[in-house]
Simulated scan of single mutants.
Amino acid sequence: MSDNFPPPPPEQPQPEHRPPAQPSPWAAPAGPPQKQRTGLVVSLAVGGGLIVAGAVVALVYSAMNSVQDSIALPPRSDTPYSEPYEEEPYGEEPSAEEPVEPAPEPTVSEPDVKKDVTITACARDPQIGWQSAKVRVVNGSSTTASYHIGVEFLDKDGTKVADGVTGVVDLGPGKSVVEEIHGLGEVPRGTTCRLVDLMRTPAGD
């Protein structure tokens, strides 16, 4: 009896086992390549902007130094400070020294004319009712003088009811004279007398 066994199946080749490949140190890290490229562009743009800004600042600083160097300040003077002097008004020439006029001689102060004239009597005439006054004149000045003397006659209320005048001519210094002045018209009893319009004029004026 023969053995009719089928022939054995052919051996299948076994896959070769290889260790996994190691990543190269020069290879780019894994990750989305688009993000890495965007970051690189941003870094380049920022760096370029900083370089341009630095160049502009350097250019402006150089220009300012050039301007300061072109404005030259005047040299400092070693002359000591002096007070400013007053300038003469424009258009006026300095005048020559004018001769000094001698001071006028002091004049002697003459006494007031009121001190030269005094009423010595004031009475009403009982017959006709007219009022009169006697005045004494003493020339208290240093020169011969003439006098003008007026008298008012006042009633009890101080109202003028009459008046009169007299004059003295060329009365020497220290000399005296008595004059009588009469009012015109009848006046009431109790009428009083008052000096007015006194004037003293030196002789020759």
Rank of each mutant, 00 (worst) to 15 (best):
I51A: 14
I51C: 13
A53P: 08
A53F: 14
G54M: 01
V56K: 06
V56C: 04
V57N: 11
A58F: 13
A58I: 12
L59F: 07
L59M: 05
V60L: 09
S62H: 13
M64R: 09
Q68N: 14
Q68V: 06
S70A: 05
I71S: 12
A72L: 09
A72P: 00
P74Q: 08
R76M: 12
D78S: 07
T79Q: 07
T79R: 03
P80Q: 07
P80N: 08
P80T: 04
Y81A: 05
E83W: 14
P84L: 03
Y85D: 10
Y85G: 11
E86R: 14
E86A: 12
E87C: 09
E87H: 12
E88H: 10
E88V: 03
E92L: 08
E92W: 12
E93K: 07
E93Q: 07
E93F: 10
P94L: 03
P94G: 03
S95G: 05
A96M: 13
A96T: 10
E97P: 13
E97T: 13
E98G: 15
P99I: 10
V100Q: 10
E101I: 01
E101M: 03
P102L: 05
P104G: 07
P104H: 09
P104A: 12
E105R: 00
E105C: 01
E105W: 02
T107G: 12
S109G: 00
E110I: 04
D112W: 05
D116P: 08
D116R: 06
T118R: 13
T118E: 13
T120V: 02
T120G: 04
A123N: 08
R124F: 05
D125V: 06
I128P: 06
G129E: 11
W130V: 06
W130R: 15
W130Y: 14
W130F: 15
S132E: 11
A133G: 03
K134V: 04
V137T: 14
S141L: 05
A145L: 04
A145T: 05
A145D: 10
A145V: 02
S146H: 12
S146D: 10
S146F: 13
H148F: 14
I149R: 06
V151Y: 12
F153T: 01
L154E: 02
L154A: 00
D155K: 08
D155T: 07
K156V: 09
K156T: 14
D157H: 09
T159D: 12
T159G: 11
T159F: 10
K160G: 03
V161L: 01
D163L: 06
T166K: 03
T166M: 02
G167T: 09
G172D: 09
P173Q: 14
P173N: 14
G174M: 04
K175D: 10
K175N: 10
S176M: 09
E179L: 14
E179K: 15
E179A: 15
E180C: 04
E180Q: 11
H182I: 00
